[in-house]
Design a protein around this nucleic acid. Sequence first.
RNA 1: GCGGGGGUGGCGGAACUGGCAGACGCGCACGUUUGAGGGGCGUGUGGGCAACCGUACGGGUUCAAGUCCCGUCCUCCGCACCA
Length: 803
Amino acid sequence: MREDNFVHSKIEKKWQDIWEAEGAFKATDDYSKPKFYGLIEFPYPSGAGLHVGHPRSNTALDIIARKRRMEGYNVLYPIGWDAFGLPTENYAMKNGIHPAIVTKQNVDRFRTQLKSMGFAFDYSREVNTTDPNYYKWTQWIFIQLFKKGLAYKAEMPINWCTSCKVGLANEEVVGGKCERCGGEVVRKVKSQWMLRITDYAEKLLDGLDTVDFIEKVKIQQKNWIGKSTGAEVRFFIPAANDSVTVYTTRPDTLFGATYMVLSPEHPLVDAMKDKIANFQDVIAYRETAARKSDFERTESKEKTGVRLEGIEAKNPVNGSMIPVFISDYVLMTYGTGAIMAVPAHDERDWDFAKAFNIPMIEVVAGGNIEEAAFTDIATGTMVNSGFLNGMSVSQAKKAIIEYLDKEGIGKPKTNYKLRDWVFSRQRYWGEPIPVVYCEKCGHVTLPEDQLPLTLPELEKYEPSGTGESPLVQCTDWINTTCPVCGGPAKRETDTMPQWAGSSWYFLRYIDPHNDNELASKEALEYWLPVDWYNGGMEHTTLHLLYSRFWHKFLYDIGAVPTAEPYQKRTSHGMILGEGGEKMSKSRGNVINPDDIVSEIGADAFRLYEMFMGAFDQAIPWSTQGARGCRRFLERVWRLQGMVTDGEVRPEMASEYHSMLKKVTEDYERMKFNTAIAAMMSFVNSLYSKGSVTKGELKGLLLVLNPVAPHITEEMFSTLFDEGRIYNHAWPIADESLIKEDTVEMAVQVCGKVRAKITVPAGSSDDAVKDAALADETVKKLIEGKQIKKVIVIKDKLINIVAI
RNA sequence: GCGGGGGUGGCGGAACUGGCAGACGCGCACGUUUGAGGGGCGUGUGGGCAACCGUACGGGUUCAAGUCCCGUCCUCCGCACCA
């Protein structure tokens, strides 16, 4: 006699051990089978342990992966550790422990936690970005990038986090603050390793049309890449006997340019300094601008600037001389760092012109330029623009570009907002950059047979604060010989950013123990692309874009067989605290998954995370709600006391098969909440019947298994002698049995529901009408009225319009 | 400001191409089982005594609108002087 109560602690560990012993979730090398590669973003093993957010993504793809396995696929669902990074380094610094030791402790804890939740990961393929056998290949990729000229060193202003004392990529600066620590970010000029992601802007954009990413991810990536088309136009400056090139998306408004603005840092400003009467003012303005943090600079849209006295530029189409300003609303980092200003048709120029009392020329009729800049490109007509007059904006755009090209004063030009990727970090706990600097040969990459270049042991990990990496202390390590000339050389002391290791980890899962290549050709051919990748929206412009860039590069050099790494990308919503605010330590509303698992069990925890609401939306946590899910599992468990032999009963067939169908479809659409609701309804029906057959219960267990693997495995093994549920075939709904014999239809009179009638399914419109008109309530309502119209929606509703 | 979501009971949320709003769960109430408690099982649960009214607000289209159209407000997320 089995125990009456469902005691999760007795079965969950038991099945986890059995799965492990049986190698249940190992991907095989049987390349003849259809494959499924499901991927979740590998976690950063922080000291805080797993967050309730991790299991949401993990469970979702766990459901898909388990379902695919039951459908006969060879499934790869791997896990690993994105373990380089600042928090570990900071912890190590504070406690005097080597980061590698901290990492190992954290990884062990994470692994234990993940295992306690029964995820069907293939742990035999674990990767760890801090493992030299792993980062050997991260370094290898960097060397390939270097060889193709895509990695370069540049002296440039970078985003410097004053708190982390480290340079950040543009993508890591959020609202002028450090994305990680919230510290203030200032500009600092430093020599940095850069990756030419801008060379891939067009490919990254085009590739989006070939993949199945949720729309908002595509939109965000497109916006981030920020492609715009326009023209570059040369303006001659007689005083300097030089010309300056501007970029504009509105060359059609060229006749309306009444001044020009250079970025304060524009090199021409210095070149012209003898000609600028008020150069002192220029210097003063520059200093103020430089002192502003990025945040201050964007905080106020009020226009400031300095007119360059004695300098004028010549408008190439009408010869008029226009004043030249410097202003910080023009960015050195975009376009050419110089603009032509058309105040009548650009909001920013309009603001600036108002502030500096500069005249405007209307060149597109249709608005009121006294009130505001007229920027509508769809309706306006060209005026005051010589040969463009009378044209539409789009016609004018074409005509002027042709003209500029012909006259040799301008040419069409495409620009991107995307910036090159700042790839240096002044930190210890990252991949060493495999480059040495030799006085004679310059920057030289290490020969590939010298990889991995491992991190040296250090006494302390503190950054110097001056912007140097902690590795500068390590003179033994730094001083080396040049691989090219054999002369003395110094190693690079900056390390790679955390995004390096995560840009290609999905490739390593495919062949994680390969010492000769990043992964074997055959394995890559078989497993790529990742079929389904789920992760957070916060990685859309960071990790997701970076890894697509690396992958496309690897594709171009023939290292991988697909142009895109991920076929499908979905995204989960955040789990909020019980009050609806973000979960955070400071708010004290953090839910520890371990507590939930020990109270209600892993199955109930998984079930709740999938049931709590729409998968892609942010949902507040509710421990009560989670207990409700536990109750459902107990109800399922108690079905064992009501079970009788037999297949699916005829009277249950329709409900049973529509439940199977609904669950099967909803899993695929990530509508886990409604899939679970369907199973709950089915169980409620069984309870009102007071019994369940083995056939019915088996189907339920099979479709419930991906969400609640332990309880279903346990019940399946007790009730059926058919091996494990995890590799049992997925049940197929029989559509022909879903149809009911009779249906209940709503009867509306003049659009209001007044009655219900039960008719045979598929009844003709006339039969339905007769049945409806026979209803007493309906009779009364239409008494003495004339029936104007009758609308019948088959098997659903009839509406009688009577006046 | 621009781009993308979202606004439905006390709460989380359902509702396919317009077709019975509120599935499923939480909470609550009552009944029942039990020595009590807990738990289970069952019933009820948008508002209103009612006719009726109800999906942020105001209009519209339609036999029929949460769903479509026009306008307004609120909220969350991303980007933000990108020429």
